[in-house]
């Protein structure tokens, strides 16, 4: 492997891991709200969260581009107030990966929360535990394997993200080039050996993540 290939693998791995870490607290919060409460607009939120799974990724990318570009509502604010650019930077990659993998995390975590017998939580309350203690000591540990399966799936999805990322971050070598973007570019340029090496790494990383997720899910089943 060349230094450039290592750089691509390293960048893809860390930005995927970071995007997964960033979405975990939000994903768990949303999943818990969906699993445990009925509230006005719940079905709309559920649908909106699932959209990136079913929409063309480039369409999601276009929406993100419009939101996070310098003339977009969020991108403009970040540029003017903090001097932060999102589009065509690693931050753009991070946001694209996070948005595209968020539904997978939420869906897995929601199922994991739903599978926790609420009687445990109720009895914990009768033993003097408040909401946070119940969540941290009962709900979260009992849902842990299902949540971790969702985290690994989200990570795997981030590793392979293409459409939204190329819209928001482009494919700038050394800056925003991920495994999937590099494979695409290598094939376009006829660099088959380069493409196959990256393909092998992609398959190995995705296999490990999905296999880990499946193992956790199997162990989580009662």
């Amino acid at each position: 492997m060349t230094a450039e290939e290592w750089q691509i693998v390293w960048f893809t791995a860390w930005v995927s891991a970071l995007s997964t870490l960033v979405i975990v607290p939000f994903g768990l919060g949303v999943a818990w709200l969906l699993a445990r409460h009925d509230w006005f607009g719940k079905s709309v939120v559920e649908t909106a969260i699932t959209l990136p799974l079913v929409m063309p990724p480039v369409a999601t990318g276009l929406i993100l581009l419009k939101m996070f570009g310098r003339r977009g509502a969020i991108g403009g604010f970040l540029h003017d107030s903090l001097g932060l650019d999102i589009v065509f930077t690693w931050r753009g990659v991070l946001i694209s990966l996070g948005v595209m993998s968020f539904p997978l995390l939420v869906r897995s975590a929601r199922v994991a929360f739903e599978q926790v017998n609420q009687r445990f939580e109720q009895i914990a309350r009768t033993l003097g535990a408040g909401n946070w203690r119940v969540f941290l000591t009962i709900t979260l540990p009992l849902a842990f394997r299902g949540i971790m399966a969702g985290v690994m799936l989200a990570f795997a999805r981030a590793l392979g993200e293409f459409g939204a990322t190329i819209m928001v971050a482009g494919n700038i070598p050394g800056r925003t080039s991920t495994l999937s973007l590099s494979i695409f570019q290598s094939v376009q340029l006829g660099q088959d050996a380069h493409a196959y090496r990256l393909l092998g790494i992609s398959v190995a990383l995705a296999f490990i993540a999905v296999w880990g997720s499946e193992c956790l899910l199997r162990r989580a089943k009662p």
Binding site: F120, Q122, R125, T126, L127, G128
Partner: peptide
């Protein structure tokens, strides 16, 4: 709230 009631509960499934 249940946590402040000081009511011990042994449910049928023990939990």
């Amino acid at each position: 709230p249940p946590r402040l009631r000081e009511v011990g509960y042994v449910p049928q499934d023990l939990a």
